[in-house]
């Protein structure tokens, strides 16, 4: 007997005496919890996102679509970044004013090569206000998972209010489980020393989030 059959057999015997209901799962139980917490307008939701991002030590910037290129260029310059990884589908306009050398996200790059790059700029798939979370889904303007992991400085652009949802349930509705997802809430951290939170372990130690208002550009590659 294979282990598969053995385990399934044990499970079936264990449940033989249990009450069997064939009612579909979603009918069998009601989800009495809230879809979101509190009532907020669009503006307030974006404010809450900014507040919660900052609470977990992300650096938050707000700008208009027209100022985005200058804002990003300023952030890279202030950081002193010499190189920046760029996802293949990122709007080229976003980095139009940056003088930093651009390194394309390529399948052939080794982790060691990535480790020598100073910064990375990406878009995101969705942002969650209640938890201060940005979610990346590996889309063309976000790139492979590792490019937002190995470099020490991540700049993530969130188009507000379109990409902002209030809550975790609303975020899951928008996301495609078939894609590899990375949920990011602040820079990497640990509570392993005396259960005290320390920011900055293996992932980027600096997370900067740009909330860009009224993103008019429709030329984002998909």
């Amino acid at each position: 007997m294979s282990s598969r059959e053995r385990i399934l057999g044990r499970v079936r015997r264990a449940l033989a005496a249990a009450p069997q209901d064939d009612m579909p799962f979603e009918q069998a139980f009601s989800r009495d919890y809230l879809r979101e917490h509190g009532e907020r307008g669009v503006e307030q939701t974006v404010d809450l996102l900014a507040e919660n991002l900052a609470d977990y030590r992300a650096i938050v910037h707000r700008c208009t679509a027209a100022d985005l290129a200058a804002t990003i260029a300023g952030m890279l310059a202030a950081r002193g970044s010499k190189t920046v990884v760029v996802p293949t589908g990122l709007d080229p306009g976003w980095l139009a004013e940056a003088e930093t050398e651009q390194v394309p996200d390529r399948a052939e790059s080794t982790p060691q090569e990535l480790d020598r790059v100073d910064s990375v700029v990406t878009a995101c798939a969705v942002a969650i206000a209640e938890t201060g979370t940005i979610v990346l889904d590996g889309g063309p303007d976000q790139g492979r998972r590792r490019i937002t992991l190995v470099p020490d400085h991540h700049i993530c652009v969130v188009r507000v209010p379109d990409q902002v949802v209030s809550s975790v349930p609303q975020a899951l509705e928008r996301l495609d489980p078939a894609r590899p997802l990375t949920w990011i809430s602040g820079p990497s951290a640990t509570s392993d020393i005396e259960l005290d939170r320390v920011e900055g372990v293996h992932g980027p130690r600096t997370l900067e989030v740009v909330l860009v208002d009224g993103q008019a550009s429709t030329e984002v590659t998909t």
């Binding site: 938890t131 201060g132 998972r145 489980p177 590899p180 997802l181 949920w183 990011i184 820079p187």
Partner: peptide
């Protein structure tokens, strides 16, 4: 005791 932990990864097979 966080609203959300810093990183959550989800993956479905290989990409």
């Amino acid at each position: 005791a966080e609203r959300m932990n810093p990183y959550t990864s989800t993956w479905t097979g290989t990409t």
